[in-house]
Design a protein around this nucleic acid. Structure first.
Lengths: 220, 220
DNA sequence: GGCGAAATTATTGGCGCCAATTATGTTGCA
DNA sequence: TGCAACATAATTGGCGCCAATAATTTCGCC
């Protein structure tokens, strides 16, 4: 067939919600910024209805905030909530250590090696978007071996929520290098099958300004 | 003013979503059961639009499941997911122990005492709905002292999700008595400010068929 | 020129209609 | 009697219109 089959709403909404979420992740929309429905219609070539559904979904997921009669804006998380998110991330991401260590195989560790190497390069030469994407890929791959899909889901939900913080002014070069080194240490812990050490490293990684998002991009 | 001010949609939707969620909690709708929009309109005296918004919200929260062109039904969680939910609950609820022990005061412990006593009575004389509500109140009060609102949120979200399991055929009388005893032990651990013991008790409480929901009620 | 009020414009939000889809019931045929 | 195909009923779902609300500009007065 020449034209693609038209998907139903729930699919389109989910896709659009993810696109918007990614845009927020890439800082195309900054915390506190209003998301005008008309702009989103054009930018993502969607109907107003779909835009609103997607925004509603993101509001439920707390990625954005809904103010009646004003619209939707990227959630700004206050300091207290930000710290709570970090604390909860340490709990959840740390809890993956045991399962990951038990289940991960050599092939996966090799792929983590590759990603860590890519990150090392990106720290000096890459854009912040690249750094962020590689970092995300690294952790996504690692956590995917924890054997608990529910846990994984919650982790990525929380990570998205934490982005609405001003504190995320983004790591200095030193912090990036530190993150880089920590990736290597995590891999070492994995090779040694040392879950406790891995959990500790993850906690440090989260606290000490781990890269959670790239620099803002100008609105197109 | 003689008539109540009309609330805006996002408020009404949230309220309706919570009402439906509670009905699911009370087993007015059983796992796998279809939620017909027309019925919900009448039962909750809402417009079709509000019903759909609320259902969408619950679908995002994974309390219910959306099947295109078929409608919404109470999510049925498979065995694997159920176990993952329990494992994650142990992680999260266990993680509250430290904060709770650190922050809880004598007045709150006294209130927990009262709730535990209420539960003891309800185990033999009360309805399952009562048992469930008291149990919920007990844990809600305890966890409210953990000092991490984000963590609390996730806990109650997960608890709601776990309800869609067939395994929740509900505790025998022996298990209820066991839960009852565990409540008292938790209070003892709180008095002793023993976070580790509290966490361990919470884990046991979750694994060994803690009461998560009442028996089904007939649809009205 | 500065400030406040009114008019104008921009944006969101409630909701109902009817097409699309699925479920149910009925008929006819082997 | 069993089954398949068709007809009918029930239910969901896409979407656009316009009223309600907020933002902005203009205008007039001091």
């Amino acid at each position: 067939m020449t034209e693609r089959k038209r998907k139903n709403t729930s699919t389109r909404r989910a896709m659009l919600a993810n696109e918007i979420a990614q845009a927020i992740r890439l800082r195309a929309f900054r915390p506190g910024e209003w998301l005008r429905q008309i702009d989103l219609e054009e930018r993502f070539e969607a109907t107003r209805f779909d835009v609103r559904s997607a925004l509603d979904e993101l509001a439920v997921r707390k990625t954005i905030e809904h103010v009646p009669n004003r619209g939707y804006r990227v959630a700004e998380v206050d300091m207290k909530t930000y710290e709570e998110i970090l604390a909860t991330r340490i709990i959840l991401e740390g809890a993956t250590a045991e399962g990951v260590v038990a289940r991960i195989d050599d092939a996966a560790i090799a792929r983590l090696d590759a990603l860590a190497a890519q990150f090392s390069v990106a720290v000096t030469t890459g854009s912040r978007t690249e750094q962020s994407e590689i970092n995300r890929a690294f952790h996504q791959l690692m956590y995917s071996f924890c054997g608990n899909a529910v846990l994984e889901e919650m982790i990525w939900g929380l990570r998205d929520r934490g982005r609405g913080s001003q504190i995320t002014v983004w790591s200095s070069h030193e912090l990036l290098q530190k993150s880089d080194r920590e990736h290597l240490e995590m891999i070492a812990a994995l090779r040694a099958r040392d879950a406790e050490r891995l959990a500790a490293l993850i906690a440090i990684h989260i606290i000490k300004g781990a890269p959670v998002g790239p620099a803002p991009i100008e609105p197109g």
